[in-house]
Write a protein that binds this DNA or RNA. Structure first.
Lengths: 345, 345
DNA sequence: TTGTACGCGTTATCAA
DNA sequence: TTGATAACGCGTACAA
């Protein structure tokens, strides 16, 4: 059943049927109704491929995401997909992993599908060596590229991100100002966003005229599912004699591992040890005591990203870079201070 | 740049170029190489829409999922997408929510996109009233429908699922046989899979000639992020005088709420209270003590689903229903018994 | 307000 | 081994 069959049954031309399908108003109501009723009775749907061929778009958008089973990324994908669908776009999801070559493959695959836009979820797609970002620039020459939580300056690339640097710096300052001196910083990635967080941590010491100590800057090389591994990692540092009265982590799961370390060594939280996570994920409510964590307002970021994406696609002029601030949500692993915000969830 | 331009540059016909593109062997090597090098130098890629129009497929598969930010569903989507991409398919992800009408909309949207197949992730798409499943049957008349963790008999519908009934029944039996008598069953959904679990729980009592008590069958009406709400819910039951020495939950987050209840009331786990969750998610490692949980081998299910999907699409005959068994993974919230399996992760 | 006819870029059939 | 050409189904100038 195609537009030709419908036009015959309705006794009109394909042009008229097409006009009805696409809601043009220059069709006589009687004609429109006749066509509509015939389409309905035949259960006719326009062929998406033919339409795509003619219009050179199928209203689809590619989402690249290293790992959509990651707590944080999964939420991002969820919010983005919902927003785009509301605007009539389909989402082609590609879980690329963290390997650059697979990411490039995914990108060219999406480009060959003629998506209207590609959304990169997370900062893992950016390479420190700018030459290796050519695959992004090339794509941006064809379609708009949206980046969540990453920052890359190029025509056609639009970034929406949280100021992880300042958020981490403020959290560090708050710990320092509340009297903590030895803040263990745990991280598990060298991505763009991870490096911003790390800089925020380090620069906070300088702001307070304190010296940053390399031994407190610790990389955990394991998956987010290996919380027991994090516990072992922190516990080993402790056994080796490292003294710390606070833990700041670049991801909630790392902080949960630190909580386990404290519980099992009878270290009281937050009196003897303050702990702060990042992402304000469901893990914060899962542990005891509940974890204070930095919230980077993911839903807000995603809503903005979708908004900018849609506007860009409809030709409106949009900002190349949109930055929001993060916020420390206090729960039970930090000492409450007056000027701090509390959990409102 | 299209096939026509390439054919001119190469001094051959479009038919020959097409043959080269699609790897036919009836092309003289010299011709093939010439065409290949010109395609490469021009950076030519066949137009996916035109190809779709001709072949009536763009090798895309629709994934419907109520909420891809849910821990369990997110993993399922991740595994399925990866498997399909390995087989050359793109995935159009649609997060439908739990409302039937949105689910129907999502389905027809995917059908109008001419996907090669639709995968329903989770049992929330099945209605108790079979008339309301017509939207699935109708879709199955056009393309294969794959269902993960659901069961619906119809030509063209292929189901891959875990025997949640038996898994839950066995867990209940294990609790009963270890001397627990008052097993609080917590659930938060009336989906197909949820009802199977509930039946398994109830029937276990009958198997042991015990009476099942309705008061121990409790529905928590809240989101999976509201662990504090689960705590309140369980704590209220306790305050109202309900006595229980075990908790069996249909999802890990419910079990974590029960752990909080025990911790805050100084009830010792597992001596005074055994707790078992479901899904064996990251939440099991996040809490203290670590949660015993039923694992339904999601990755295995997904790999099988993808396998059956691909085979079905290539015309092979495949089973309409594939069932795996679940398995209780013992951690620290249950008393270890000899014949029980232990955490191997 | 309606119809004709062409273009979109492939693949596939048939003939050479 | 290659080429000419007809589908595939739609949108849309342009003409009426």
């Amino acid at each position: 059943m195609n537009i030709y069959d419908i036009s015959k049954l309705a006794g009109v031309s394909t042009a008229t049927v097409s006009r009805v399908i696409n809601g043009f108003d220059n069709v006589k109501p009687a004609t429109r109704n006749k066509v509509l009723s015939i389409m309905a009775s035949q259960g006719y749907t326009p062929n998406a491929f033919a339409r795509g061929l003619g219009l050179n778009t199928m209203k689809s958008i590619g989402i690249m995401c290293a790992d959509s089973s990651d707590l944080y990324l999964a939420k991002a994908v969820y919010f983005i997909e919902g927003g785009l669908r509301e605007n009539g776009y389909h989402c082609i999801l590609t879980c690329t992993g963290y390997d650059r070559e697979s990411q490039k493959d995914a990108m060219s695959s999406l480009m060959s599908q003629h998506v209207d836009c590609v959304i990169l979820v997370g900062s893992t797609f950016i390479d420190k060596n700018n030459k290796n970002n050519k695959y992004i620039y090339d794509a941006a020459d064809s379609v708009p590229i949206m980046m969540l939580n990453a920052d890359l300056e190029y025509s056609g690339i639009y970034c929406v991100l949280c100021d992880d640097y300042t958020a981490t710096q403020n959290a560090t300052l708050e710990l320092l100002d509340s009297g903590r001196k030895d803040i263990l910083y745990l991280f598990n990635s060298y991505s763009y966003s991870a490096q911003k967080k790390a800089s925020g941590y380090r620069d906070a010491f300088e702001l307070r005229n304190m010296t940053y100590d390399e031994r407190y800057y610790q990389f955990f090389d394991g998956s987010s599912h290996d919380i027991e591994g994090v516990y072992n990692f922190v516990n080993d540092l402790y056994k080796k004699g490292l003294q710390f009265d606070a833990v700041l982590a670049s991801d909630d799961f790392l902080a949960v591992g630190a909580i386990k370390y404290a519980l099992r060594n009878n270290i009281s939280i937050p009196d003897e040890l303050s702990i702060i996570g990042y992402n304000n994920s469901i893990l914060t409510n899962c542990c005891e005591p509940e974890l204070s964590s930095i919230d980077n307002h993911l839903e807000l970021l995603c809503r903005n990203l979708v908004d900018i994406c849609i506007k860009t696609l409809s030709g409106e002029s949009t900002p190349q870079k949109t930055v929001f601030r993060g916020e420390l949500v206090h729960r039970k692993t930090t000492v409450f201070t007056d000027n701090a915000s509390t959990d409102q969830s």
